[in-house]
């Protein structure tokens, strides 16, 4: 590649990167400014000092409606929802994918097509029936209700991920293990699952991001003490007690986004690898 082309390429990439980083920059700098500094300075100005006051307030004392305990309770609600929901939906997806590729039965392809349909179904469609179902299950307005919703809604995509990954694992592997005397679960644990790291990572990140960032189900199905962080953030930003505290809002928004960023940071390389790589051969 010629030097000039390379120069143009990098310039374009740099501009694109800046474009994406700018909001991040504004949020970060604003969150460590004091209200005085925000009022008197420009939006893009570099902070004169670093004040963590807004962060503290956003975490445990900002008002979200009538209650003034910051994002903390919402954050832990989200953790309590996300962890079991991600684990359960990933496990179910793995088992489903395994059955749909390696233990096909009459009608398994039809079931898979129906699941595919679930991936593209608009979320709004399920709101009413889901609320009815949760009522029957006695899980209305609870953390476990939201876990159930997220697991059910997640199964379609997790199954799709695992199925598409497992079709590339040769069937002969399962046949060989069957002849060796391993059964359904042993083959899964000892042979299939150890080959699944990339797709587990993909599913994990996908599900974590989706569930952590979910707002719709969080608003509709949560009770007063099971609201997830997205709802908390919304309430915090919309609760006006006189002045709008931009620094607190920004700090709260970053807190809400940190876990997903963290996950990408830790497991992101697997994401790309898992999406591009098929199962290991040989």
């Amino acid at each position: 590649m010629a030097k000039s082309t390379r120069f143009i390429l990098y310039t374009v990439l740099l501009i694109a990167a800046l474009f994406y980083l700018l909001p991040m920059y504004v949020m970060l700098t604003t969150s460590v400014k004091t209200m005085d500094e925000i009022r008197n300075g420009s939006l893009l100005a570099f902070p004169t000092g670093i004040s963590l006051e807004a962060w503290g307030k956003a975490w445990d004392s900002a008002c979200t409606g009538i209650q003034c305990s910051g994002l903390k309770p919402f954050f832990w609600n989200s953790v309590k929802i996300v962890v079991p929901a991600v684990i359960l939906s990933t496990m179910l997806g793995a088992i489903n994918g395994y059955v749909l590729t390696k233990w096909k039965f009459k009608g398994s392809d039809i079931i898979f097509s129906m699941m595919l349909f679930g991936v593209f179904m608009p979320l709004q469609v399920v709101l009413l029936p889901m609320s009815q179902t949760l009522g029957w299950m006695g899980l209305t307005e609870s953390v476990w209700g939201l876990v159930t919703v997220h697991v059910l809604m997640g199964i379609a995509s997790t199954t799709l991920f695992f199925r598409n990954y497992y079709v590339s694992i040769p069937d002969e592997l399962v046949k060989a293990a069957t002849l060796d005397g391993a059964g359904f679960f042993r083959i899964f644990w000892r042979i299939i699952l150890p080959l699944s790291t990339p797709i587990i990572m993909v599913t994990f990140i996908w599900q974590f991001t989706n569930i952590w960032n979910d707002f719709l189900f969080g608003v509709v199905f949560s009770g007063s003490d099971s609201k997830p962080i997205t709802v908390g953030l919304n309430n915090l930003v919309n609760t006006s007690t006189g002045v709008k505290e931009y620094n607190v809002d920004m700090a709260a928004a970053i807190i809400a986004g940190l876990p997903t960023m963290f996950i990408y940071f830790v497991a992101g390389k697997y994401f790309v690898r898992g999406l591009t790589a098929g199962a290991v051969k040989g």
Binding site: L173, K175, A176, L179
Partner: peptide, 13 residues
């Protein structure tokens, strides 16, 4: 019985 497969079907892990 024991079987040898065309793709060998060795457990990759």
């Amino acid at each position: 019985i024991a079987m040898v497969f065309q793709s060998y079907a060795l457990y990759p892990n």
